[in-house]
Design a protein around this nucleic acid. Structure first.
Lengths: 206, 206
DNA sequence: GGTTACATACCAACTGGTTGGTATGCTCGT
DNA sequence: ACGAGCATACCAACCAGTTGGTATGTAACC
């Protein structure tokens, strides 16, 4: 966003927030935790952010530009066929599971669970972020639907939300079991379902 | 569990915990919040529970016996055909979505997100609880698989986890959007997928 | 070139309110 | 009279946010 956003200390705090909040949650993360992780002082923190909540709102925005960049730059994103992009997305997310649990889980999914009733602005930011990610995904799904299942009874958007829900739910089990095994199995089921909707990516159109 | 568990104040605290923790999360829920919601004093709270964490562990156990009872008593549970029980479960969960968001979301899904890295005992309790619910569901799925898809490439257990992940992910979107609409759409997709695995419940076997 | 004025970035110490938990004593059934 | 259950007052630790100050840069003015 603003040139300000590039400032070193500011960035370090936002980066630290994505890690610490994902690991401990919002309420349990103290400003001191963040400062220690970012290597800045409390004075610096409150110089850059009016409050802890305002900071986390910017952390969500920071997270979204960061992840949007990752998915846009991924190899699958430049596939010519939209269905290949959809399945490429699934494979890409499956490969992300090779990282550790705190690394592949979602900041917004974690945040919204504990803040939806108490911090309306955070809830709204998570809603916007998750929905915009779904919208990006939905574009490819809709293109694939028009090409491979034009008479389908389902909407592309509902499939986009379904994919995200499977991912978010998988993260919960990954945390509970400290293992990505269930998440991997879930992605396999999800792929099979999408193949039933769009056909397998190595089949021909129609 | 023990006859102790039936004690009035104890029960009121555990009931309050399921509501308040689901709404505000574990860290943001104070012992005073719980006491106020339960209508007991702090002295009573710490008479019955050694600590906030020990209380939440019992709240998880309390939650599991409560929900297990609900699902066991639901009409679908006594269907003769295992496939009917599986789809009955899906319909039952869909109907639960008519309640408010705080009412149909899952205590353990909320809890584990923010505690998995900081409160190992809570994480383990959530894992046990969620896995045992999956295990109950898996029994019906396995019976349906043997009857309707004996040569299937998938395991009943992995389908059980998939169903739960879709539900948990749906809860996240319900919280983010303060609406169950996405959750309903997700359950429709889930049903379609299960029909592709087991056949539609009004079809004949094989 | 030097001085004033001001803005940004940062820091350590502090504050006032909150929190989980404790200490102590009251009450009531047996 | 004795212990289970409960109530009240309290405490030390902790927390978000404040304060007052320093260091650095920089733009303007003479």
């Amino acid at each position: 966003m603003t040139p300000q956003a590039l400032h070193q200390s500011r960035l370090k705090i936002l980066d630290a927030a994505t890690d610490v909040v994902r690991a401990k949650g919002y309420a349990a993360t103290t400003v001191d935790d963040l400062c220690a992780a970012a290597g800045v002082t409390k004075g610096s923190f409150f110089h850059h952010f009016k409050s802890k909540e305002e900071m986390v709102l910017e952390a969500v925005a920071h997270w979204n530009t960061w992840t949007d960049g990752i998915f846009a730059a991924a190899p699958y994103a430049s596939a010519a066929d939209p269905r290949d992009r959809v399945f490429g997305y699934l494979d890409f997310r499956r490969d992300l599971l090779d990282h550790t649990v705190p690394q592949f889980t979602c900041l917004m999914g974690t945040l919204v669970q504990e803040t939806y009733a108490t911090h309306p602005a955070v809830r709204a930011a998570c809603d916007r972020g998750m929905s915009s990610h779904v919208a990006i995904l939905t574009r490819d799904i809709e293109a694939a639907r028009l090409k491979y299942a034009p008479d389908a009874a389902w909407t592309a958007e509902s499939v986009g939300y379904f994919i995200q829900a499977v991912l978010q739910g998988s993260f919960i089990f990954a945390k509970a079991k400290e293992s990505a095994a269930v998440a991997r199995g879930n992605l396999a089921h999800l792929r099979r379902y999408l193949e039933s909707l769009l056909g397998s990516p190595d089949q021909n159109p129609r």
